[in-house]
Simulated assay, not measured.
Amino acid sequence: MLGMSVEVRNDKSQNQYTILDDGRPVGFAVYQVSGHDIAFTHTEVDPSEQGKGLASILVQEALDDVKATTDLRVVPACSYVANWVEKHQEYEELTRR
């Protein structure tokens, strides 16, 4: 069961987006910026929190943030992000910027 407030924030100092459930970190998506690319290299959700859709929320919020605040091209180097983008065709444009 998800808490009352799920929040995703960009922790730029750690090069990762962190997902919090009621203020508690429960997962992250690590990225590396190189030139005009932002490569998502690893996505992880606490095993005790899996199955709640948190990884999907995390990836969607991270990609929405990249789209809204940068002109970087998304490189889905992590298999979860690659599969997510494949299932959500409207985000494929981010991989061709």
Rank of each mutant, 00 (worst) to 15 (best):
E61M: 04
D22A: 09
V33I: 15
V6Y: 02
R9S: 05
E93R: 11
D65S: 14
Q14F: 09
I19M: 00
D71Q: 06
R97P: 06
S34D: 11
L58N: 04
D37K: 13
G3D: 00
T18A: 03
Q14M: 12
K12E: 15
R97V: 10
E86A: 14
T70E: 03
E92V: 15
V33Y: 11
G51N: 10
F40P: 04
V8D: 09
A55E: 05
C78N: 10
Y31E: 06
G53I: 02
R24S: 09
V85M: 07
G35S: 08
L20W: 02
S34K: 14
T41C: 02
S13Y: 05
N15P: 07
Q89P: 15
Y80D: 04
K52Q: 13
D65N: 14
R97N: 11
D37N: 15
Q60S: 14
L63K: 13
I19F: 05
D37R: 10
I19E: 02
D65A: 14
D11Q: 11
V74P: 02
V74T: 07
A39T: 06
L72F: 01
Y17R: 01
Q32W: 03
I38G: 01
Q32C: 09
L54E: 00
A55Y: 13
Q89Y: 11
A29I: 09
S5H: 05
Y80G: 03
D11N: 13
E61V: 07
N15W: 07
D11G: 02
E44D: 10
V6T: 13
V8T: 08
K87Y: 05
V45Y: 06
K52T: 00
S79K: 00
D11I: 08
V66N: 07
V30Q: 13
T69Q: 15
E49S: 14
G3F: 02
A62G: 04
M1F: 01
A77Q: 15
L54Q: 00
L72H: 02
V6E: 03
M1V: 00
